[in-house]
Computed example of a mutant assay.
Amino acid sequence: MVGVGFRREMREWSFQDIQADFFEIVPENWLQRDRAILHQLLASNRPIYMHGVSLNLGGHSVINKEFLNQIKALKQELNAPFYSDHLAASGDAHQLYDLFPIPFTLAEAERISHRIQEVQDILGFPIAIENSTWYTNIGEMSETDFINEILKRSGCQLLLDINNIAVNEKNHHLISVPEFIRQIDLEKVSYMHVAGHEYDERFDMYIDTHSQPVEVTTREVAKQVAQQQKIPILLEWDNDVPSIDVINQELVWLQPSMTM
């Protein structure tokens, strides 16, 4: 299965013409809005996954029960099979509209696991956490050990973002994408993200922009995992969203049965 993140630029498209097996939404964008268009997506007989941006798992603020109850109600309304958020901090006193890394330490793994367990207790179902892009970080553990420890302690699932691994590899040269995947328990992966990124000369770093086609190497790794593990792939294209023809071509290239 291959899906696409549903963005506002797609509202005027014919949903039947989008060559996706499922859609993904940012639930925060729909909690206070008319959701008729989401039910139109569901009427095309394709599920909607929910991927959030403000759970702030890496932060220290009190878990917002009212917000989670809204998320739970939306998930029930859409019959969404998954709800996920980022393994990152997004602001305590205020939503910072960015994702900040968590130090890779055992103490932080334990703290974050407790926060995830609290979230899951309120929701009544397991969530998935996404491995994040990070531009600087500290810690005593490798990223994969850190993630595996949280998965074990919390009982949550993993939203495996292949593009984020590729960006981190290019910027930090610590671990390759194939090796990262070998060190992760793929039985715990709910689905995968792929996207494009750009090099920014100002910072001499690759930036996770979600504004370009998926790199061939990222695409092929995702397709291989999808074929072997039967794990869905989700295309993210959040900025400079192209035409439906470009999106559909990306989706065709991501089909596990396709070859280059």
Rank of each mutant, 00 (worst) to 15 (best):
V62I: 12
V62E: 14
I63W: 07
N64L: 05
K65L: 07
K65V: 15
E66A: 15
E66R: 14
E66D: 14
F67W: 11
F67K: 13
L68E: 08
L68I: 05
L68F: 08
N69E: 12
Q70I: 01
Q70V: 04
I71W: 01
I71K: 03
K72R: 15
A73D: 14
A73R: 14
A73L: 14
L74A: 07
K75P: 05
Q76A: 15
Q76R: 13
Q76C: 06
Q76I: 09
E77F: 06
E77S: 14
L78E: 04
L78P: 09
N79G: 15
A80P: 11
P81Q: 12
P81C: 12
P81W: 10
P81N: 10
F82A: 10
Y83H: 08
Y83C: 01
D85H: 07
D85M: 10
D85G: 09
H86A: 01
H86K: 00
H86S: 01
L87Y: 04
A88V: 04
A88N: 04
S90I: 05
G91F: 01
A93I: 15
A93V: 15
A93W: 06
H94K: 10
Q95G: 00
Q95W: 13
Y97M: 12
D98F: 07
D98E: 08
D98P: 00
L99E: 04
L99S: 01
L99G: 05
F100T: 04
P101M: 00
P101D: 02
I102T: 09
I102G: 11
I102F: 10
P103M: 05
F104W: 10
L106Q: 13
L106Y: 07
L106G: 05
A107V: 09
A107R: 14
E108Q: 15
E110G: 04
R111N: 06
R111K: 14
R111P: 11
I112N: 04
I112H: 02
I112A: 02
H114W: 07
R115I: 04
R115M: 09
R115H: 08
R115N: 10
R115D: 08
I116C: 09
I116A: 11
I116E: 09
Q117F: 00
Q117N: 14
E118A: 14
E118F: 06
V119I: 13
V119D: 08
V119M: 06
Q120L: 03
Q120S: 07
D121C: 05
D121V: 05
D121M: 05
D121R: 14
D121Q: 15
D121N: 15
I122S: 00
I122Y: 02
I122E: 03
L123K: 06
L123D: 07
L123V: 09
G124C: 03
P126W: 10
P126K: 10
I127R: 13
I127T: 13
I127K: 12
I127G: 13
A128Y: 05
A128N: 09
I129W: 01
I129M: 11
I129F: 02
E130Y: 04
E130P: 14
E130C: 07
N131P: 04
N131Y: 01
T133D: 00
W134T: 05
W134L: 02
W134E: 04
Y135K: 05
T136R: 13
N137K: 08
N137W: 02
N137C: 08
I138S: 06
I138G: 00
I138V: 09
G139I: 07
G139K: 06
G139S: 06
E140V: 12
M141R: 03
M141V: 08
S142G: 15
S142P: 06
E143M: 11
E143S: 11
